[in-house]
């Protein structure tokens, strides 16, 4: 109820100039782009941010050749199972993680460069009917998978050679886990959202399921993107791809919600709603970095929000190349990557 009373504010309408186009890269061999991301890469003693693009059958690594020019370094060909998404691993280097599958993830692979053999290679780290996956700091990967009878939630530690080391089974909630987010600054705390629209909290060290807290029926299919603890409260950034439009708050794409983990009670902190002219249908996919949210809207535009103020700060309208299909924040908040299905990616400074 408290959340419903908050009124979002648009700061004189969204300003496109808060996004500055830095460079464009075009994968001419790409028939249908499925994801884009960035990765830290170290070669010849030089550590730099590289762009990773994924189509259904190939994942390519791009290096900066000049301030506004990118060149393809290497392409991993993955022809057996389609690539679905690139999984970010927060503090790794020379490592790309991808999810492959048909309608849902069936396999997670690591793509890497081996110094020992001076070659690029890939290896399987997880198979199954995987519903959700997240990369955590310290080379850890958490995934939820389902069999006919039960749900498994598991954390594995990744090795620099592309394998998996230690594992920890986490106690599964009754409902299917739809997304995970690490609790920033708390190495052993993890949150997840469920198909029943709850936020759950785990202890990664012991595997304990600590708390299940309901998000509310107004916001079905909520997805968690980010979590942090402050002053005894757990703040979770949620996106709401299917939230209904209401008179009081428009169409909320993102919400910041404060949970009291001790009591399970919650209160909305801020709404970030679809900008005027884009309301009605919801958004296709979103990404969060720090206090910035970005999403591809069904109108074909990309919208950017300041999530703590609830302001839409920028809108990229669909361009001559058509609708935007992808919006991802670069590692370390280095900018926004916006992509078209034809393999064109624009890198913006924000």
């Amino acid at each position: 109820d408290a959340a419903e009373q908050l009124t979002p504010v648009l700061l004189d309408g969204p300003r496109e100039e808060s996004l500055q186009l830095v460079s464009e890269l075009k994968d001419s061999s790409c028939s249908c782009a499925v994801d884009v991301s960035t990765v830290w890469w170290e070669a010849a003693g030089c550590r730099e941010l590289r762009v990773v693009t994924a189509s259904e059958s190939a994942v390519s690594l791009w290096e900066p050749l000049a301030p506004d020019c990118w060149g393809k370094v290497y392409t991993w060909h993955l022809r057996e199972i389609p690539v679905i998404q690139i999984i970010s691993l927060p503090d790794t280097c020379n490592l790309v993680c991808v999810a492959l599958g048909e309608l849902e993830i069936g396999e997670i692979r690591l793509l890497l460069y081996s110094c020992e053999t001076d070659s690029f290679k890939h290896s399987v780290v997880k198979t199954g009917n995987i519903k959700a996956v997240v990369g955590l700091k310290d080379w850890r990967l958490v995934s939820s998978s389902r069999t006919m009878q039960e749900q498994q939630v598991e954390m594995v530690s990744l090795s620099e050679t592309g394998g998996s080391k230690d594992g920890q089974t986490l106690m599964p909630p009754e409902e299917t886990v739809t997304a995970f987010a690490e609790v920033e600054g708390m190495r052993e705390a993890l949150v997840g959202t469920t198909a029943g629209n709850s936020v759950v909290v785990w202890n990664l060290k012991t595997g304990q399921l600590l708390r299940k807290m309901h998000v509310g029926y107004s916001y079905p299919a909520s997805i968690c993107h980010r979590a942090y603890s402050d002053s005894g409260l757990l703040f979770v950034v949620l996106s709401h791809p299917l939230a209904k439009e209401s008179e009081s708050c428009g169409s909320p794409a993102f919400r910041v919600v404060a949970f009291n983990p001790l009591t399970g009670r919650s209160a909305g902190v801020m709404f970030s709603c679809l900008p005027p002219g884009h309301a009605g249908r919801q958004y296709l996919e979103g990404d969060v970095w720090d206090t910035a949210g970005a999403a591809v809207l069904t109108s074909g535009a990309v919208a950017v929000w300041d999530l703590l103020r609830g302001w839409c700060t920028a809108v990229l309208p669909p361009g001559p190349a058509g609708h935007w299909a992808l919006a991802r924040w670069a590692t370390g908040g280095a900018g926004l990557l916006a992509g078209h299905r034809d393999g064109t990616v624009h890198l913006y400074r924000y």
Partner: peptide, 23 residues
Amino acid sequence: CSETDLGPISLNWFEELSAEAPP
């Protein structure tokens, strides 16, 4: 521990819940 609209809160909520939750 202090009282808010969301009930009593604790800076050590993670440790407290870990001590209470089933192993």
